[in-house]
Amino acid sequence: MASFFAGVLAALIEFLARIITAVRAIWDGVGPIQAQRIYFANHTSNGDFVLIWTVLPPSLRRRTRPVAAADYWLSSGLKRFVGREVFDAVLIERDPTHRQTDPVSQMAAALDGGSSLILFPEGTRNTGEEHLLPFKTGLYHLARHRPAVDLVPVWIENLNRVMPKGEVIPIPLLCTVRFGEAMRLSDGETRDDFLARCRAALLILSEKGPVT
């Protein structure tokens, strides 16, 4: 029963995402193929991972789990159901003082289970004027623990205008999701170098232009 409702909700969420954003995937460096990946993207809206999830072919979608904040997704019954049953999110505790498990080992465990991940390395929603916030270190630690998994930069264009922070009703505008070339942690690469390289890869994608 729960999985039936999860299926209905998933279809509804995808339908709404497509009506509102007519989202289009541009595979600009990697293809939509069955491969284990860590998709890392810019984060401006709660709908970000929904768009990535929507443009993935169903066979990839089933094996791709978003990494999301436990405090948000466990805050109500419906969110809990959507987060766990529809998106199968890896829920991590953002506040270190409340942590019982380490987020990086949670993500590594999900990778070991064969899943791909969707990750927002800025750590929080970017609601300011800044194009892309500095990255938190989680992406580096994950890459160090699982160096054989491809990291794929993903730039989500326009969703911040569809639903700016604090607004309830979205305005329908076209969005694109651009997937860039896969990258990995190099031998001897320092944390800061690696994060700068990842951030630069995302920024390059963002400059490739939006809709057409």
Binding site: A22, P164, E167, I169, I171, P172, L173, L174
Partner: peptide, 25 residues
Amino acid sequence: FAALREFLTLTAKSRGDHYALVGAF
């Protein structure tokens, strides 16, 4: 609806227009 969505994608830039655009749609 589809045409307005395309048109405003090229124009709408300001958060100050959010309610006006919600009204338009």
